[in-house]
Design a protein around this nucleic acid. Structure first.
Lengths: 240, 240
DNA sequence: CGAGACTTTGATCCACGTCAAAAGGCGTGG
DNA sequence: CCACGCCTTTTGACGTGGATCAAAGTCTCG
């Protein structure tokens, strides 16, 4: 009955046992999706709500000149499109970055779940955290210089990956190409490359393939002014 | 009993009469706040939830070097910090741009209100729309060129101001300095000035003081690729 | 071993920032 | 009603961070 979703929601507040049963039933085994596939496209109004069980996905928006902005990363336990319980059409796309395992939850089950007050509040909390991350990203892209911007993203990912047991100490897997990091930060991949070099020269990170080692994490945190408060992960950061 | 909040929430779905009564009671006359004052600061955990009755406010975040990013505009009917019903501490600041009328709603009243399913869903919807706007802003700042970025912001503001009866046709008041527009778009005020000139030269907007006239709005919309879908204002864009 | 995708490096360009100063508003007080 | 001071806008000259273009190097996987 314990699963990645329940574990996530209970970071906000403990759930009644019947609610946990409901949430437990909903996560079937899921289906495999290859890397770099779209799960949902802008304008669609899917009947199901998708949830990432395993792997790395993202929300992104496109300009008609082909430029792309990644506006969120989705990690295991994250909903792709809970919105459609409320909003009719997607205003952005969702695509996998690494191979993913995805569950499709019928809209009916979602509507059942949000009948229960505790689940509704937990879903709302999920939403508020997503929004807080977006605000920080906007600050990052709008105001921080290149190297700090890159460092800040890495700091956030380390913390979020740790929260889902995908980072151990200073080592973790980040299945992103430099082009994808660029689409996140508003840079070209060439410039991402130079920023990562700079961070390496400062002794903060080394990257071999998709493996990242962030030695001197405290140094990098200080360098870019990272403050994890906006992730609202501490159980102290919510009220019953 | 009709007020700016009810009108806003009913853009999502009609509310039961008792819910409207509840929402009607909550908006007292409000207090005046001068322009450029902070309503709440990052880290605070206020007991009240604030709502803008009249005027123009914003959410913003600061870097320790003093750089500022405005991450949202708050118009009449918008909550400043509904979050604190769920999250303990503010992760950003809220400040007025023009003189504002603000109501303080005790947290208890908010908790009462979210007991009611229809109100809870409406609040959630408000939240989802805020998030959708943030995504579009991130795309704007991350990927659009200067003139288009500026034009896109103006298009959004026209639509949003129209929705609260603060724009009439192509004319409206925008109580923002060019420095504030710069803090929104990630530019210096000097560059905002040049962008506005460019838009004027293209015949899209003229600005005298805080008054803006957007003649040839369709042209500007086409120029910057503005698509209002992300604002989820159409009643067609939600499901019951 | 070869092909395609990703990374790295270098040279050059340009959008936007920085700095500085002039020119308008606009409210206040004389 | 004018004069002063402050804030905002406008303009110009110049500097620079990051984009662009191009080519070489590396990795991966069939």
């Amino acid at each position: 009955m314990e699963n990645v979703l329940i574990r996530k929601l209970e970071r906000f507040a403990p759930l009644p046992i019947e609610d946990k049963r409901l949430l437990g039933d909903v996560l079937t085994s899921g289906r495999m999706v290859a890397a770099r596939m779209d799960l949902i496209r802008e304008g669609e109004a899917s009947k199901d709500v998708r949830l990432i069980l395993d792997g790395f996905a993202c929300r992104y928006k496109l300009l008609n000149n082909g430029k792309r902005q990644i506006v969120a990363y989705l990690l295991p336990g994250d909903f792709c499109d809970l919105h459609i319980a409320i909003l009719k059409a997607m205003d952005h796309n969702i695509g996998t970055l690494s191979p993913c395992t995805v569950v499709d939850i019928p809209r009916g089950r979602i509507l059942e779940m949000i009948e229960r007050a505790a689940i509704m509040r937990a879903f709302w909390w999920v939403n508020l955290v997503d929004e807080a991350i977006l605000r920080e990203w906007l600050l990052n892209v709008g105001q921080r210089t290149a190297a700090k911007r890159t460092a800040h993203l890495l700091c956030e990912l380390i913390v979020r990956l740790e929260a889902v047991d995908l980072a151990h100490g200073e080592t973790f897997k980040l299945p992103l190409t430099q082009a994808e990091i660029g689409d996140t930060l508003g840079f070209t991949f060439v410039h991402v490359n130079r920023c990562l070099q700079q961070l390496r020269d400062m002794g903060f990170v080394t990257r071999t393939g998709f493996n990242i080692v962030a030695s001197r994490l405290p140094g990098m945190i200080k360098f870019c002014g990272f403050d994890p408060n906006y992730l609202h992960l501490e159980s102290s950061s919510h009220v019953g």
